[in-house]
Simulated assay, not measured.
Amino acid sequence: MLDEALDGRAARLNERYRHHAATEVLRRAVSDPDLGRVTLVSSFGAESVVLLHMVSVVAPGLPVLFIDTQMLFPETLEYQREVSAKLGLTNVQVITASEQEIARNDPDGTLHKFDANACCDFRKTVPLERVLSGYDAWITGRKRFQNGERAALEFFEPEPPARLRINPLAHWRSEDVQEYMIENKLPRHPLVAKGYPSIGCAPCTSPVKEGEDPRSGRWRGQDKSECGIHFIGGRMVRGKVSA
């Protein structure tokens, strides 16, 4: 019954916002009573600045959750500080695994080499879920064009048992993202110019060659295409994730 109710809420919201542009979906969603307490989760990656800019315009005080896995590129950490300051985001919250969790799960920093899912789980999923448990919905930058698992993505998705995901950019094309960045003179992540169109943790991200899928540099050679923060009911979804 709970899942049916959640599915029904997502369906009603998708119908309500069916003809809205991304900015209007975001503007209205942050105050829609059917969504409750809303936050944005951002990686401050290659395309993150688009949603961050939209938030800075419509709700600069909205909580923005940034997961520092402590294995990110130095460029990402600097970019996070630069973008937050430039856009005037006033409520960026940096989330990390505790020292005790790191000592218990990955004391020598090599877990990613033999169990990337477990590494993503304790460095990303668990710390994020601790904070997300205080929210009713969260905004993501996921888009249909990014990979096959996201091909049917809608503006609103149920996340059982009781949370919703909001995907304002679900219907955007890659060209739309680039045009928005250019038109608004937004700073680019420095690694994009070095061949990283999709950026995660340093040990698990590699440059992408011309003609390759933009996300092919994430966990290259592994049967894995999601970091795990797109989970169901607080549980990490292993391997590929259906949209």
Rank of each mutant, 00 (worst) to 15 (best):
K240P: 10
A21I: 06
T140Y: 04
C119P: 00
L51Y: 13
N117E: 10
G233I: 07
H53I: 10
E154Y: 08
R28M: 00
M236D: 11
C119L: 13
E210F: 10
N14F: 01
E78A: 14
S31V: 12
P127I: 03
L65R: 04
G134H: 07
F231I: 15
R218P: 03
H19I: 09
L89P: 15
H19Y: 12
R144P: 05
F231K: 15
L35C: 02
C204L: 01
V25M: 05
G200N: 02
L26V: 06
P60E: 05
A193Q: 03
P214W: 03
V49C: 13
P33N: 04
V92W: 12
H53Q: 13
K124Q: 03
L13M: 03
Q178M: 09
V177E: 08
D3Y: 06
L169Y: 01
F66V: 04
E4T: 10
T69I: 11
G233Y: 09
T23I: 13
R173P: 03
G141C: 00
V58I: 11
A97F: 13
G195T: 08
P33S: 05
A137N: 08
T76H: 08
V177N: 07
M54W: 09
D32G: 04
K185W: 13
G109A: 09
D34S: 11
P190R: 07
A29P: 00
M1P: 15
F66Q: 15
F73G: 00
V38A: 01
R165I: 01
L132E: 02
P158L: 05
T205E: 14
R104E: 09
I182W: 13
K194V: 08
K143L: 10
L153P: 00
L89R: 01
I102M: 06
L65M: 01
F145G: 09
K194D: 02
C201N: 08
P74W: 04
V177A: 12
L52C: 02
H189I: 06
S31F: 09
T140F: 04
S198V: 07
E82H: 12
S216H: 08
A10V: 14
R16V: 15
G134L: 07
G134T: 01
C204V: 00
V92T: 12
R215G: 04
Q178R: 13
R37C: 05
K240M: 13
K86D: 07
R130G: 13
I67F: 06
V92R: 13
L169Q: 05
T90A: 14
Y180A: 15
C120A: 00
H20N: 01
E78V: 12
M1L: 10
E154I: 06
L111M: 00
R188L: 14
